[in-house]
């Protein structure tokens, strides 16, 4: 569904992605694990088209997306829940969700809003409240809900568990699993490697801008180096 080949990207003259290759098949949860500064967020930004790519190709559903603008990629079916949630703080929860469907704003959104509330019942009570007043966990739910409003086929999740209480982490992971059951394809970036590997089908390990290991999530979980470096075992 998504294939990234030899993608390079740089901030100014400093290259942070040195030719990354990975693919995500339809219906999968693929996780990308790696330390801080490995280039995970840069790669997510490159896939969404908000970070320029200096080399390599990206294809989504067989179609090259390298030249598409960020909004055209949303239209094509790729949505991202950015790291740190990034909800629109001054706007109400409802407006955040409505804006999530910006590229299909003429559509009837009632069903989609209802669906998001079904996934995150806690949001209903806050619909008219500014998103900035929500707790971190609620903002994360909102950020995921906002991305879903675009009706993506591929969801990019960047560190959804970051800064959340353990109970909320479980809740977010449960939602990710149920989204997969609905048929959504997911690329998940996580520092919480244990949790990510537990729900993923396949995994890639990204180290200083290169994929150093890939395979079935269970195999990666058993890998000695991964256990030492990312799982603290």
């Amino acid at each position: 569904m998504l294939s990234v080949e030899n993608v390079r990207s740089a901030y100014g003259r400093i290259e942070v992605l040195h030719g990354v290759t990975l693919h995500v098949d339809a219906g999968e949860i693929v996780t990308l694990i790696g330390a801080n500064g490995a280039g995970k967020t840069t790669l997510m930004h490159a896939i969404s088209g908000v970070q320029p790519v200096t080399d390599g190709t990206m294809k989504f559903e067989g179609r090259s997306i390298g030249q598409l603008s960020a909004h055209a990629r949303v239209e094509a079916g790729i949505s991202q829940v950015p790291e740190g949630r990034q909800v629109f703080e001054p706007l109400s929860v409802k407006d955040n969700l409505r804006l999530g469907a910006w590229r299909r704003r003429s559509a009837d959104l009632r069903q989609d809003l209802a669906h998001v509330i079904e996934l995150f019942p806690m949001l209903e009570a806050f619909m008219e409240k500014p998103a900035g007043t929500l707790s971190g966990g609620q903002q994360q739910m909102l950020a995921i809900g906002r991305a879903l409003m675009a009706k993506p086929r591929l969801l990019l999740l960047d560190e959804p568990s970051m800064g959340l209480a353990p109970k909320l982490v479980d809740q977010v992971l449960a939602v990710i699993r149920s989204l997969k059951d609905e048929g959504l394809t997911i690329l998940l970036v996580e520092q919480n490697a244990g949790a990510a590997l537990a729900i993923a089908d396949r995994a890639y390990v990204l180290e200083t801008g290169k994929v150093t290991l890939s395979g079935a999530a269970a195999d990666i979980h058993r890998d000695r180096r991964v256990q030492e470096a990312y799982l603290g075992i």
Binding site: V50, A70, H71, V74, S79, P82, E89, L99, R103, R146
Partner: peptide
Amino acid sequence: ANRLAARLIG
């Protein structure tokens, strides 16, 4: 409020 997030929602 958040240009990056605005671009990411299209």
